[in-house]
Measured scan of single mutants.
Amino acid sequence: RNLTILSLPEDVLFHILKWLSVEDILAVRAVHSQLKDLVDNHASVWACASFQE
Rank of each mutant, 00 (worst) to 15 (best):
H15W: 06
L3M: 09
V45K: 15
W46L: 12
C48D: 11
A43C: 14
L3K: 08
E23R: 14
L13Y: 09
V28E: 02
W46T: 09
D24R: 02
A49Q: 14
N41V: 06
L8D: 09
H42Y: 08
R1N: 15
I25E: 02
E53F: 05
E23K: 12
L38F: 14
N2G: 13
E53H: 01
L38H: 12
K18C: 05
N41Y: 05
D24G: 05
S50K: 13
D40S: 07
S21G: 10
L26F: 07
S44M: 10
E23M: 02
D37S: 14
A43M: 08
W19L: 15
D11V: 10
H42T: 06
E10K: 15
L6N: 04
V45C: 13
V31N: 05
W19V: 10
A49W: 07
H42W: 07
S21L: 01
R1Q: 07
V45D: 15
C48E: 14
F14C: 11
Q34F: 08
D40G: 02
A49G: 14
I5M: 10
C48Y: 08
D37K: 15
F51T: 13
Q52G: 11
D40M: 01
L38R: 05
L17D: 01
L26T: 08
D11P: 12
W19N: 15
H42F: 07
T4H: 13
E23V: 08
P9V: 05
N41E: 13
K36G: 01
D40V: 05
N2C: 08
R29W: 02
L17T: 05
L20E: 00
F14Q: 12
L26A: 09
P9A: 02
L17N: 00
V31H: 00
L20S: 03
I16D: 01
A43V: 05
V45G: 11
S7L: 04
H15V: 06
S50G: 14
L20V: 07
V39E: 02
R1S: 14
L6C: 04
V31P: 00
V28Q: 03
S44H: 15
E10N: 05
D40L: 00
K36N: 02
L3I: 12
N41H: 13
L20R: 01
S33L: 03
K18R: 11
H32M: 00
S21D: 15
D37W: 07
V28R: 01
A30K: 09
E23H: 08
L38I: 15
K18N: 12
L3R: 11
V22T: 11
W46M: 10
S50M: 07
V39F: 02
A27C: 12
E53G: 13
S7K: 12
A49S: 14
C48T: 13
V22R: 11
V31M: 04
S44C: 08
H42N: 08
D37C: 14
C48M: 10
S33Y: 02
A27E: 03
V28H: 08
E10A: 10
V45R: 13
I16H: 00
R1M: 08
S50R: 13
A49H: 12
W19G: 10
H42C: 10
I25R: 06
L26I: 13
V45N: 14
A47D: 13
L38D: 03
W46S: 09
L17P: 00
V39Y: 02
I16T: 02
I16E: 02
L6T: 06
L13E: 02
V22E: 09
V12T: 06
L17M: 13
L35E: 03
L38A: 13
I5G: 02
D11H: 08
E10V: 06
L26G: 07
L20K: 01
V39D: 04
S21P: 13
L17Q: 02
F14A: 15
L3T: 07
W19R: 11
I25Y: 00
H15A: 09
L3E: 03
S50F: 04
S7V: 04
N41R: 15
N41G: 13
H42V: 03
E23P: 10
A30Y: 06
V31Y: 00
A43K: 12
I16K: 00
D40H: 06
L38G: 05
S50V: 05
R29C: 05
S7P: 03
D11A: 14
N41D: 07
L3C: 09
A47G: 15
P9R: 04
H15N: 15
H32A: 07
L13W: 10
L38M: 13
K18P: 03
L6W: 04
L13F: 14
D40Q: 06
E10H: 11
L17F: 14
W46D: 13
E53W: 06
D40N: 04
L6V: 04
N41Q: 15
I25P: 02
K18W: 07
L38P: 00
V28F: 08
H15E: 10
L38Q: 04
K18Q: 12
L6E: 01
Q52W: 10
L3F: 12
V45L: 13
D11F: 02
S33P: 11
S7Q: 10
A49T: 14
W46Y: 07
A27F: 00
A30Q: 13
L20I: 04
S44D: 15
I5R: 01
Q52V: 12
L8M: 08
D37H: 12
V22I: 14
L13T: 14
Q52D: 09
E53V: 06
L26Q: 11
I25K: 05
L26P: 04
F14G: 09
I16C: 09
A47K: 11
C48I: 09
D11K: 15
F51C: 07
A49I: 08
W19C: 15
R1W: 00
E10C: 05
S21C: 09
R29D: 05
D24F: 00
W46H: 08
D11E: 11
L3G: 07
D37L: 14
N41K: 15
V45Q: 14
K36A: 05
K18A: 09
A47W: 08
A49C: 11
A47H: 09
P9E: 04
V28K: 03
R29S: 04
D40Y: 01
N2F: 08
L35S: 02
L38S: 09
A30R: 14
V45H: 15
H42S: 08
K36H: 07
L13I: 04
V12S: 01
L8T: 04
Q34N: 07
S33I: 01
Q52N: 09
S7T: 08
L20M: 07
I25S: 02
V22A: 11
E23T: 07
L26R: 11
E53Y: 09
L17R: 02
Q34G: 08
A30W: 01
S44T: 09
V31C: 13
V39C: 10
Q34S: 13
N2Y: 08
W46F: 08
L6K: 02
L26K: 13
F14K: 15
I25H: 02
V31K: 02
L6I: 04
L38E: 01
L3H: 09
V45I: 13
T4D: 13
Q34W: 03
Q34A: 12
D37P: 00
L26W: 06
D24E: 08
F14L: 15
F51R: 10
R29G: 02
P9C: 04
N41I: 07
D24L: 03
H32G: 05
F14D: 03
D37V: 13
S50C: 11
L17E: 00
H32K: 00
L3N: 09
E10T: 08
K36V: 02
Q52C: 10
T4N: 13
D11I: 07
L6H: 04
N2K: 11
H15Q: 08
T4G: 13
F14I: 14
K36T: 03
K18M: 10
